[in-house]
Nucleic acid binder design. Structure first.
Lengths: 140, 140
DNA sequence: ATAGTTGCAAACGTTTTGCAATGGG
DNA sequence: CCCATTGCAAAACGTTTGCAACTAT
């Protein structure tokens, strides 16, 4: 019900990373906590500057790197483009990337995951993590 | 038995891409045909320069881009680092990575591929390419 | 002959870094 | 108070591009 929840989530990210809580970092963490997409550093910076216009590019990159290094953000490098970020505490999903627009859709397929486990098992392994990306174009 | 095979393979790559056969391109294609690893552009250039030291960076990038665009090279972008290349004339496969030893096994699952196409179709897309990596540990 | 290709160098987009000033614990 | 953090600007990095000279067909 209360907005405080979001603010707490942002601070929690920073604390979990062992980072001092500062105004720029709070704005950046807030952006990530609120994001429903997979923004790259430039987009994170632009959004954070709506809260605090004085934030520098360097701080955005440094904060993102620190959070990612501590495992609090997941990073995706779709093809050769800019690294995109998302908070890591959300349920697993895979990605479908529109190669023409760069749009990213999330999906989950229990069947695919089951088959992945079967493949792993056939090789004598169990899956710790996986990455599945579908590079697509709109069907004609 | 004969070395000519390699040279032909390099030329075949260029012809298949509809590119004129030139000395720099032949050297680059040769490097790719001979590669047993996944070199990035800089490595391809360095190796090609052993055959022809006058090759420019621009030509390396342009040739790699042309071959990749025609589907004759596969590209991998591990993390955010430089794009790596490999000739695409080997059958498609996915990767199972042993997170403890780093060993990489290749596998193919027609069923998974079929489900991938179904997922894409459900979103109104067709798959251009995909990447599937299973990070595993040996089953207890 | 002529369209495709080249090397060079400059530009590009993303990310990192050196530094002096600032500010959080 | 002290060290982490900041903004700035410049540099680093991988990659692309404009251009005039060259070359395969």
């Amino acid at each position: 019900m209360s907005d405080r929840v979001d603010s707490d989530e942002a601070d929690a990210l920073l604390k979990a990373a062992g980072l001092r809580i500062t105004k720029p970092r709070r704005a950046i963490a807030r952006v990530l906590a609120d994001a429903h997409d997979h923004p790259d550093a430039e987009q994170v910076l632009a959004r954070a500057r709506e809260h605090d216009p004085s934030i520098s590019q360097a701080t955005a990159y440094r904060t993102l790197a620190a959070l990612a290094e501590k495992g609090l953000l997941r990073t995706h490098t779709f093809d050769g483009s800019a690294t995109r970020f998302e908070v890591a505490n959300r349920p697993h999903h895979d990605h479908l990337i529109d190669v023409e627009t760069g749009e990213v859709r999330e999906f989950v397929s229990g069947e695919i995951e089951r088959l992945q486990r079967r493949v792993a098992k056939e090789h004598g392994y169990e899956i710790i993590a996986h990455r599945l990306e579908l590079y697509c174009r709109k069907a004609g």
